[in-house]
Amino acid sequence: MTTPEPLAEVRDLHVRFVGRENTVHAVNGVSFTVNPGKVLCILGESGSGKSVTLRALMRLLPVQAKIEGTVRAAGRDVLALRGKALRDLRGGEVSMIFQEPMTALDPVYTIGQQIGETVRRHTGCDRAKAWARALELLELVRIPSAERRLDAYPHELSGGLRQRAMIAMALSCDPRLLLADEPTTALDATVQIQVLILLRKIQRELGMGMIFVTHDLGVAAEIADTVAVMYAGRIVESGPVGRILAAPLHPYTAGLLASTVHGQPRDRDIDAIPGSPPDMRRLPRGCAFAPRCSRRREGCLATVPPEHYPEPGRMAACIAIEKHAEDTLLVHG
């Protein structure tokens, strides 16, 4: 069996925002791969570098961002692409859905114009064809009375419909890789579920690969094949979703889980871990989570913890892992 070429491959990605006074180390050595037809969920609390990682895949970062490492998407070396080649990738083979459907759409153009523009940009077809395609897309994302909605401006749609329109736009050129940055966070709970189910369904039907950023474990459980948990710009644990949710290895993942799975209110999940995330301008030398960690021991602050692979497809970066992994795997395994 030959392994297919991964759709997205990130190796040792570093992103720094170099400012006049200080430098923000937003992403510090992130690696992952996404295969065609699979969904990777990136989990982590606010500021852990999820969005920056995602944007790096399309090079959608401001000029002051210094990007290092390897980023391959849809078979291209993204960091080496220039000008038109990069723009062909964006919205063509890789597209992105944003968190805030209200502000992510241009308020002075209609939905139809905005989708049509994307279609025309990548296929070069005429307006009538682009319009027909836009209509088809709105129907694909199940927007009721799609024909009429083509002429609507973003402010005339509800949040859920707006996000569906955003999804339609992202799908307009049959991307192979879909990047979704908390696409349901800004929506009401019931709408959230609908949009989530729709996204998963479309992803399966079209066979796209997807990277889905969220800080909601429930959402991850619903949609992911694999999960990567980020903390302070690093992936601290990754692996198949079922295994991670059943038997978390890293104390941070365990902390996240402990607060959500056992029936506590969702909005309190961050509070469950004492302390707050580190200052990304001055990261500690060792494990960034150590100051908040209940299993902290000597050596945690000395060096960045190495990656452990306790079972196939799983990774956890914690020096307490070897001992702990055995225990956990014995219990849950």
Partner: peptide, 11 residues
């Protein structure tokens, strides 16, 4: 925000 969406569309 929408400007980033425009760039993400490949414009």
């Amino acid at each position: 925000d929408f400007v980033q969406t425009l760039r993400a569309k490949g414009l």
